[in-house]
Amino acid sequence: MTHTKISMAQALNQALRDAMTADESVVMFGEDVGALGGVFRITDGLTAEFGDKRCFDTPLAEAGIVGMAVGMAMNGMRPVVEMQFDAFGYPAFEQVVSHVAKMRNRTRGRVQLPMVIRIPYGGGIGGVEHHSDSSESYFAHTPGLTVVTPATVADAYGLLRRAIEFPDPVVFMEPKKLYWAKEEVDLTESQPGIGTAVVRRDGADATLIAYGPAVPVALEAAEVAAAEGRQLTVVDLRSVVPFDDETVCAAVRRTGRAVVVAEASGFASVSSEIVARVTEKCFHSLAAPVRRVTAFDIPFPPPKLEKYQLPSVDRILDAVDDLQWEDS
């Protein structure tokens, strides 16, 4: 297979197409995913190719969508459902936390739910109110869920394939601001395992720990830092749950300093969990308290103000500068 230049949206589309070809129990449904191909075109062409029993529109009701997926997964299917936008997935919250997450546990493993809930999430696309939330912490906090989020085109393909094959329900968070950027990739080589983080860049001085939409920003910051003489490691979590303590802690121990970068608000979040874990496990390797670059603890702002809310290269570099390189 040769390398082709495609976007994350196209890679996700290809992953769905390949999964539906490989396994006829895979079905895709949600709002506008049929003829339209999804508002982000992730399901483009699937109804035409596989028919409307395999990829279909539903009534506009997210609890119904997720609840129906639970029943279909109970009865031998592998449903993939799309929540059209992050904040529009909240009506399904009870189904996700009380049923999707708990079915295996409450039935002692007798009922498994191999299903994927795809959620386009995050800001950076000029979306109006309720179109830019980072909702991963709600799901990461819920035992029984697996939560993954790709930051590259290749990972988008590989993670979605793994998620659909996974025996347990996966919340698949798609950073929508990364949908359109293209990369040269060979999709057949994309084999990210669920639960494994990856080191995107090696550097001896400090570690940036990021996931999803924050990863490209962290990489850009590392590029600038290198030019200024500081070599930064960048870890891309890919999988929020299960959390890859090993890869994260190895990087932190090697570098002795760390900054967590996330697009979500910081309070009681995935980023605070990462700081807690790193501090608990790597305390004697740390030369400075772990810093965070996150969104403010405010509702996601209107488009004209969102640049103040999103992690930026400058904020990351400032946080790195604050890692007590010298005693004050």
Partner: peptide, 29 residues
């Protein structure tokens, strides 16, 4: 649940109903 085709008892109210629809829809497919 598979032995006698009886879903787990639901203590939240009505949340089992969309599941029932899903089981029925999958059966039809």
């Amino acid at each position: 649940p598979y032995e006698h085709k009886v879903a787990p008892q639901a203590t939240p109210l009505a949340t089992q109903l969309p599941h029932a629809v899903g089981v029925a829809h999958a059966a039809r497919l």
